[in-house]
C-alpha cells in the first residue's frame, strides 16, 4: 500500500484555509487584547478638556460622559463586535470622527511608505548581500556590514528625525530599519548555500560566477527569503509609529501614537486589529507563495 501525497492544488487550499483562520483568530484576539490594555491602563477615560477653567460642572460632566465609552469593557466589546459585523468601526472620541474615516484618510500614506521603504531595502540588501557573497570586493562587504550594524543600533525615532533634518521622505527611515534584517539574513543564507555540495560541484564544473550565484545559491533560498519578508513587513509597520510621529507624517503610525497617548479605545482596537491582519496576511502570503512555488517541499 502506498500513501499518496496530496496534490499541489489541494495542499494550496489547505494552506490558504489554515492561514485565513489564523488571521481571523489573531485579529479577533489582538483587537480584544489591545482594547483591554487601553481600557485598564492609567488615564483611561480622561480628557484634558476637563482642566479648562472656563467650563462649568455640567460641561465637564458632559465630557466625562462622552469619554465613558468602554467603562464597562464587556459591553464595549459586544457593541464593538456587533458594529463590526455591520461594517462600522466605531467612533474616535478624541479626534471626534468615525474610525473608518480616519483609517481611510491615512492608510494610503502608510502603505506607500512601507512599500517604498521595503522595496528600497530589498533591492539594497539583495545587491549588497549578493556582491558580498560573490566576494567581488572585501571593502564593499565590510562597508555593507557596517551600515547594517549602524542602522540596527540607531533608534527608529532618530532615523525619523534624520529624515526631517535631511528633508527626505520617511520611507528612507523605513528602509534603514528593515535593511539590516534583510541584509544579514540574505548574506547568511548565501554564505550557507556556498558550502552546499551542488554549489561546490557547479563551481568545479566551471559554471559562470553569475549563474552560480543566481541559479545555485539564490534560487534555493527563495522560501527562506519569503519567510524573512513576512517578518520585515511587521518590523516596517512597527517602525512607522515612531517614524511618522517624528516626521509628522499623517499616516496610521501617527494615528496609533495619538490613539495610545489619548487612550482612544475604539481607534486603538481597530488599529491593533489592522496591524494583526497586516502582519499575519504578509506571513500568510509568504507561506502560500512558498507552497505554490515549491509544492510539497515548500510546505515542509
Amino acid at each position: 500500500m502506498r500513501i499518496q501525497a496530496p496534490s499541489r492544488s489541494r495542499l494550496l487550499r489547505i494552506v490558504v484555509i489554515r492561514q485565513c483562520a489564523k488571521v481571523v483568530l489573531a485579529v479577533f484576539l489582538g483587537g480584544i487584547a489591545g482594547a483591554a490594555l487601553a481600557r485598564y491602563s492609567a488615564g483611561f477615560g480622561i480628557d484634558e478638556r476637563e482642566m479648562d477653567a472656563r467650563r462649568s460642572s455640567a460641561s465637564i460632566e458632559t465630557i466625562r460622559h462622552s469619554r465613558s465609552e468602554g467603562a464597562d469593557f464587556a459591553v464595549f466589546c459586544f457593541g464593538f463586535l456587533r458594529g463590526m459585523a455591520h461594517g462600522e468601526l466605531g467612533y474616535s472620541t478624541t479626534l471626534n470622527r468615525p474610525v473608518a474615516d480616519l483609517i481611510r484618510e491615512r492608510i494610503a500614506v502608510t502603505v506607500a511608505e512601507i512599500c517604498e521603504g521595503l522595496a528600497l531595502a530589498i533591492v539594497a540588501s539583495s545587491v549588497l548581500a549578493g556582491l558580498t557573497a560573490m566576494r567581488i570586493s572585501r571593502v564593499l562587504g565590510a562597508v555593507s556590514e557596517l551600515v547594517a550594524s549602524v542602522s540596527l543600533c540607531v533608534p527608529v525615532a532618530i532615523l525619523g528625525y534624520l529624515c526631517l533634518l535631511l528633508r527626505v521622505a520617511p520611507f528612507w527611515a523605513v528602509a534603514a530599519c528593515t535593511f539590516p534584517h534583510l541584509f544579514r539574513y540574505t548574506a547568511n543564507l548565501l554564505d550557507l548555500a556556498d558550502r552546499k555540495n551542488h554549489v561546490i560541484a557547479a563551481r568545479a564544473r566551471g559554471v559562470s560566477r553569475f549563474r552560480l550565484h543566481t541559479m545555485h545559491r539564490l534560487l534555493p533560498c527563495v522560501p527562506e527569503l519569503l519567510a524573512t519578508l513576512s517578518l520585515v513587513v511587521s518590523i516596517a509597520f512597527g517602525s512607522t509609529i515612531p517614524i511618522e510621529f517624528a516626521t509628522e507624517t499623517p499616516g496610521l503610525g501617527q494615528l496609533a501614537w495619538q490613539a495610545a497617548s489619548s487612550r482612544d479605545l475604539a481607534l486603538l482596537c481597530v488599529l491593533t486589529m489592522f496591524t494583526a491582519a497586516l502582519v499575519l496576511s504578509a506571513s500568510g502570503v509568504a507561506e502560500v507563495s512558498r507552497v505554490w512555488y515549491f509544492g510539497e517541499r515548500g510546505a515542509e
Partner: peptide, 28 residues
C-alpha cells in the same frame, strides 16, 4: 513624572497624589 492622562486622572478622579506642579493657561 507621569504622562498627561495619568496625571489628570490622579488630580481629578483618584486624588492619589501629594503635590502637583502644572501650568495654568489663561486664554482670557
Amino acid at each position: 513624572t507621569l504622562d498627561f492622562a495619568s496625571l489628570i486622572e490622579r488630580i481629578t478622579r483618584t486624588y492619589d497624589y501629594e503635590a502637583c506642579l502644572m501650568s495654568l493657561t489663561n486664554v482670557g
